[in-house]
């Protein structure tokens, strides 16, 4: 492990080496199994403070990071900057982060609407920055928890066929998953209306298709993405109804899945827009497992960053 990548921040999956992904997943598995045994307190982050700085509304990611920090015995504060006064008053991202840093936290978990915000802060701050989603760029903890979910249900990622269906253009989850799944040896197909597939996405080593049938016919894993009403301008799909008809995972299309295929969704779901309620709650769905695994993987991220930080201090 002497030459292993040192984790200073977690900014995205693209820059992670396979060995680092493996390490985070293995650590996540360990936490998951301990949590399942009923253990609720760990000491990895005792006397540490984790700040969640969220510039976008978020319930699950923020509470998942908060839960992870608390399970590890860290102190945790939430700074919701989506409508907070200092931000409304014009304070810049760097100023807000520096103010928080002046209170001596040990980790910063950042959610921001602009791609590259975590990169910017990682250059300005002394503490590890964890990207909890930046614009359309990356959402690394989501891809890691998805990978943990796939491994615990399918055994291994290598050789699997994964279809990602929906608004790829405006999805940080899609990008992080494409990088991770490619690195771990899966074959990825992205599917959606042409207006929601980003130009040049094929050059990220994925297969592109506009047909859901084609995307899912031999898929082992189907990831359904949320149609992000709040992100896209309205000229990209004619209506939700047409989208559901052509690209939604409804009961009919779900029937074409091969046996043992699993269905994932990063949430929050629009039932009846990208996925039917029956499919979302059906036996193939691992959507709630994803949420459970989220806490374990975020514990793994915090624990590994803490470990490498201490390694740097020696």
């Amino acid at each position: 492990m002497a030459d292993a990548q040192k984790l200073e921040h977690l900014l995205g999956i693209e820059d992670l080496e396979v060995s680092s992904i493996r390490r985070l997943l293995d650590r996540g598995k360990k936490f998951k199994s301990d949590l399942e045994k009923g253990k609720k307190k760990f000491i990895h982050l005792r006397e540490r403070t984790v700040v969640n700085l969220f510039f976008e509304p978020s319930s699950r990611t923020r509470s998942s990071f908060e839960m992870a920090a608390k399970r590890l015995d860290a102190d945790n504060i939430n700074f919701m900057a989506d409508s907070s006064t200092s931000v409304v008053k014009g304070e810049t991202l760097i100023d807000t982060a520096k103010i928080l840093e002046a209170m001596s936290p040990d980790f910063l978990v950042l959610r921001h609407g602009s791609a590259g915000a975590p990169q910017l802060l990682s250059k300005k701050l002394e503490i590890p920055v964890i990207n909890a989603g930046d614009g359309f760029h990356e959402h690394p903890s989501q891809a890691l928890l998805d990978a943990l979910t796939i491994e615990t249900t399918k055994g291994s990622i290598e050789g699997l066929k994964v279809a990602i269906i929906g608004d790829i253009a405006h999805s940080r989850v899609a990008r992080s998953n494409i990088y991770l799944l490619n690195k771990m040896g899966a074959t990825v197909t992205v599917c959606g209306p042409p207006t929601l597939l980003p130009p040049h996405v094929g050059r990220l080593k994925v297969r592109e298709t506009y047909s859901v049938q084609e995307a899912i016919e031999d898929a082992d894993v189907v990831m359904i993405l949320r149609i992000q009403f709040e992100r896209q301008n309205t000229k990209q799909i004619p209506s939700n109804a047409e989208y559901y008809r052509l690209y939604g995972l409804n009961n009919n299309t779900a029937r074409q899945l091969k046996g043992g295929a699993i269905i994932m969704h990063p949430g929050p779901m629009n039932r009846g827009v990208e996925i039917s309620p029956q499919v979302a709650d059906g036996s193939n769905s691992v959507i709630l497992n994803q949420v459970t695994n989220g806490v374990a993987i975020r514990m793994a991220i915090l624990a590994c960053l803490e470990e490498d930080r201490n390694r740097g201090r020696v």
Binding site: E14, A115, G116, D134, G135, F136, H137, E138, R172, R175, P198, P199, H200, V201, R203, L204, N233
Partner: peptide, 20 residues
Amino acid sequence: GRGVMDEGLNSCRLGLRGIP
């Protein structure tokens, strides 16, 4: 539109809106 960089592989990777 709201594009901030060249539309291409880099804008796709960086998650930034492209200008074609």
